[in-house]
């Protein structure tokens, strides 16, 4: 397993060019091209803002501007959920590569996660523009220093889960359908459209078990709420948890690796 991980570093150029290809191919032939990376989260944000401003307009005052609060959670969530949804399919759709080319299979889910991360990164300028627009000037260097840490934790966590999902989907194709529903549930079980302190005490204990809760809260604390970053203990715990999840996911992937060429 360690050997395979080291091998992976050799394939960095391949991962780079595959991510670039993924991004290019996704918008090839569409008029707006790369701008969809900006527009998609923007449109989603528009929908949620509309619903929660005009249809369900009751909120505590500290959630203003609500659109910005939402954006802090939805942008990373989109990265997370599309990565998982796509990577569960990626070994099957890339079956030709696995069967016909000598090729470390873990490159495929990793590329999926990284390509989605690039969409996330393209969305960040919009997020910062929003922060400036709302004059919600609470960004301090001390808080922003935590921002890359959150992203790295999310990356490790997502890659770990993506490896696990891609490997078991090869054997159980219904993971795809299960996953769609799990992700919907997961979205509402994460404080993205509501703040953590609106959850009842019982639910809060359960929400704490959800790893994405701590990522979402971290993003919100850094980018939305004023004051120093108070969630850092949880975030450090998440560093450990995400590393453990990554190792577990990679272990499962590695164990099932030899079956891919025969099963896909």
């Amino acid at each position: 397993m360690l050997h395979n991980l080291r091998q992976l570093i050799r394939y960095r150029p391949l991962i780079q060019s595959l991510v670039a290809r993924e991004l290019k191919a996704r918008y090839r032939g569409s008029v707006l091209g790369f701008f969809w990376s900006f527009f998609n989260p923007l449109l989603l944000l528009g929908i949620y803002s509309f619903v929660f401003t005009f249809v369900l307009p009751s909120r505590p005052a500290d959630l203003e501007p609500y659109a910005l609060f939402l954006f802090c959670g939805i942008l990373p969530w989109t990265w997370f959920s599309s990565s998982l949804a796509e990577s569960s399919q990626v070994l099957i759709s890339g079956g030709n590569l696995i069967k016909k080319v000598l090729f470390p299979a873990e490159v495929l889910p990793i590329v999926t996660v990284l390509a989605n991360m690039m969409h996330f990164v393209f969305g960040l300028p919009i997020l910062f523009l929003f922060i400036l627009y709302f004059k919600h000037a609470v960004l301090t260097l001390g808080e922003l220093a935590w921002f890359p840490v959150v992203i790295i934790v999310q990356l490790i966590l997502t890659v770990g889960l993506a490896l696990f999902l891609s490997a078991i989907t090869v054997h159980f194709r219904d993971v795809k359908d299960i996953l769609g529903n799990v992700l919907t549930f997961w979205f509402f079980a994460t404080p993205i459209i509501y703040p953590m302190d609106m959850a009842p005490p019982m639910g809060r204990a359960l929400l704490n078990l959800n790893p994405f809760t701590h990522l979402a809260i971290s993003y919100q604390e850094i980018l939305f709420y004023p004051g120093p970053f108070g969630h850092w203990r949880w975030l450090l715990a998440m560093v450990v948890a995400s590393l453990l999840l990554f190792v577990a996911g990679y272990f499962v992937f590695d164990r099932l690796r030899d079956s891919f060429a025969e099963e896909v």
């Binding site: 290809r21 090839r28 590569l97 016909k100 090729f103």
Partner: peptide
């Protein structure tokens, strides 16, 4: 298999 891994769109 020749061209396995070609992406049709690019």
């Amino acid at each position: 298999e020749l061209g396995a891994g070609f992406h049709p769109e690019i």
